[in-house]
Design a protein around this nucleic acid. Sequence first.
DNA 1: CCGCATCCTAAACGATACTG
DNA 2: CAGTATCGTTTAGGATGCGG
Lengths: 111, 111
Amino acid sequence: MSKKEPLCDNIAGEDCGLKKVLNIVGGKWKIMILCVIDKDEVVRYGDLRRAVFGITNTMLANSLKELEETGMVIRKQYDEMPVRVEYSLTDKAKSIIPILLELKRWGEKNL
Amino acid sequence: MSKKEPLCDNIAGEDCGLKKVLNIVGGKWKIMILCVIDKDEVVRYGDLRRAVFGITNTMLANSLKELEETGMVIRKQYDEMPVRVEYSLTDKAKSIIPILLELKRWGEKNL
DNA sequence: CCGCATCCTAAACGATACTG
DNA sequence: CAGTATCGTTTAGGATGCGG
């Protein structure tokens, strides 16, 4: 009998681990956002918008909110004047980075 | 100086290895299709349609065509009557499976 | 400075019917 | 059996302007 670990267990639903991952880091901008924060550790909203070339306020704010809700980034607000907001990665997000790096290397080698 | 390997090298374009990967295995069905073929090694079109619950002819045919064009699956046609078509994974596709499995495990553990 | 609200476009996805 | 063609729907993404 085959002992192969299946890629997806629940072919029908959204509860496959793989699909869950794509749900939270998929889309057009999320990985690039994680990338910038990973690189600089702590990043302000405005710096993020300048670093992620081409992103609009709408998409950056939406993406950051979703990343925060899924426990990937931490939002810290300083009520100065004007206000300052800093984003950083959670431990959870940091733990996925090495796997994404493997995927990146695979892509560079094979595509 | 930081020696950290960047997640994305080209923040602006589509030429980041990570984005390339998502381009070819992203979307709603591609990973599930790869999953089924990986499990059974060689799969006929009709079996694939039954195995990937909820997929339509349109999406299955489109996805398979794209996976073939990106060198992820092999299409072999037998001109019998009625015709028979079998799909299998390329070595390239097989080599990404272990990484996807890691992602899957990460998703199961963290999401 | 850091976003949100609104409206709009484009692309992904889907239903149905039909063909070699 | 293994798809294609056509058309409708839905969702992701984007432009612009306003507000705390």
